[in-house]
Amino acid sequence: MLSKDPYDILGVAPYATDDEVKRAYRELAKKYHPDLHVDNPLAELAQERFQEIQEAYDTVMQERASGRPHSYQSGGNQSGTYDPFGFGGSYNNQGYQNNQGYQNNYNNYNNYQQRQDQYRGNGSNNDPCNCCMELWCLDSLCECMEAI
């Protein structure tokens, strides 16, 4: 359970973009990664900090994925994390057929379609190959393979 606001732990504002959150996570993770503190007397502290950072990141990303607005009063790990694989120990919500799971699926589907339009819409701009019209043409006989 987090006792601090996850955004404070990561050192970013609640309105930071996803990329900013990810960048902040990467920088902090690099600093406190256990592999870097093997012979360090402060290793235990670094490990705790690392875990805290990991949890904060997971909390923020899950919150954003589910479309819930960030309100820190609720705190900690929200229930309703969709886990069809019964994977991790911390994911103790077994009832993944509940509304939250359904809502997550619906959100995922919608988000996916929105991004699809983004990436397909720009298809012709990104397609460097005129001969085969394939975006990622790796056909060894295709001329476009020769052009760098």
């Binding site: 960048r23 990141y57 899950q62 994925a65 379609q113």
Partner: peptide
């Protein structure tokens, strides 16, 4: 793919 992409977006990849 929607489910696949949803997981992808949670990864701290830049």
């Amino acid at each position: 793919m929607a489910e696949c992409a949803a997981r992808f977006e949670t990864l701290p990849i830049l």
